[in-house]
């Protein structure tokens, strides 16, 4: 229990304060309801009959639990294929970021790198350049490199992320230098220092990053729609955008069932790993 905040126990005895405090609590409750309501609406609409979703005024609770919608939604298009593509993108991105940026962060904070300051600036400068200003040249660049319709168009650029590099470097700065000196005394190479000491000690930051990378891969629909011209290569989000959001022939209840299927995994990840996500948020605010 908090012993006091801005308000003290003494304040709470005054009726005026009580009234305003009560009002604020009502506002917070309203906020919570309006945050959660749309999420439940999505879940419940996915379980209604189509007639019930289309009724006016709409009802909140489903008229029955029509789990069959999920099967129909699953079969509406090749969900497993798109899911596989999304997971492939996530896995590849994570590998590149973990290895390439991890190694770079490690050497920038614990090894002797010539022109270290200049090199660090070279990496971190990119944080200042708003991504939208070069989105089109970036796309042309991918095209000229011949990476269109290939997952490499996601995996390699994923490593060009100064924000993740900064998070990794800040974390590794916190690992004591003596650890590596001791290891080197025992004859460990740089690589062993990285793989046997720095990596295992950085598991917390890696888990935070993994969640970031997962949500980016799960969320991104626009960039893949530029890069992937074969529909069999679409990740789930792009496929949903192309085939579900704009679809006219699709019953609303099935549509919401599909949206629920896409929404449930990230919510589950959030509820399971809340701790890491909250920490990531703080990291992002301190310097990012």
């Amino acid at each position: 229990m908090v012993e006091r905040g801005i308000l003290s126990r003494y304040d709470f005895r005054r009726p005026g304060v009580k009234l305003v405090y009560g009002l604020v609590i009502v506002i917070i409750a309203l906020m919570v309801v309006s945050m959660l309501n749309p999420i439940f609406v999505t879940l419940f609409n996915g379980l209604k009959t189509n007639a019930a979703v289309n009724s006016f005024p709409p009802t909140f609770f489903p008229d029955g639990w029509h789990w069959r919608n999920y099967r129909e939604g699953w079969q509406f298009f090749d969900m497993p294929l798109y899911l596989r593509n999304t997971l492939l993108i996530f896995g590849g991105n994570a590998m590149v970021i973990f290895v390439v940026l991890g190694a770079a962060a490690f050497s920038l904070s614990h090894l002797r790198v010539p022109y270290k300051r200049a090199v660090t600036t070279f990496f971190l400068m990119t944080l200042f350049i708003p991504p939208t200003t070069y989105i089109i040249p970036n796309f042309v660049n991918i095209k000229e490199l011949g990476l269109m319709n290939s997952f490499w168009a996601f995996w390699l650029p994923a490593g060009a992320n100064a924000f993740y590099l900064l998070l990794l470097k800040t974390f590794m700065d916190g690992i004591h230098h003596e650890l590596f000196e001791a290891a080197r005394m025992d004859g460990a190479s740089d690589w062993r220092c990285f793989s046997r000491i720095a990596l295992p000690l950085s598991v917390p930051i890696y888990s935070t990053l993994a969640i970031f990378i997962f949500s980016t891969a799960w969320n991104d629909w626009f960039w893949p729609s530029l890069i992937m011209h074969k529909s069999t290569m679409y990740p789930l989000s792009t496929a949903i955008y192309k085939y579900v959001i704009g679809a006219r022939q699709l019953d609303l209840n099935i549509r919401f069932a599909i949206l629920s299927i896409v929404m449930i995994p990230p919510i589950a990840v959030f509820l399971l790993f809340q701790r890491f996500i909250m920490r990531g948020l703080q990291l992002g605010s301190v310097k990012g």
Binding site: F123, N138, L165
Partner: peptide, 16 residues
């Protein structure tokens, strides 16, 4: 260890 990252930054950020 910085080289792979530097290469990726050049090709996929600075170049575009």
């Amino acid at each position: 260890f910085v080289l792979p990252a530097a290469a990726i930054f050049i090709v996929f950020l600075w170049l575009p």
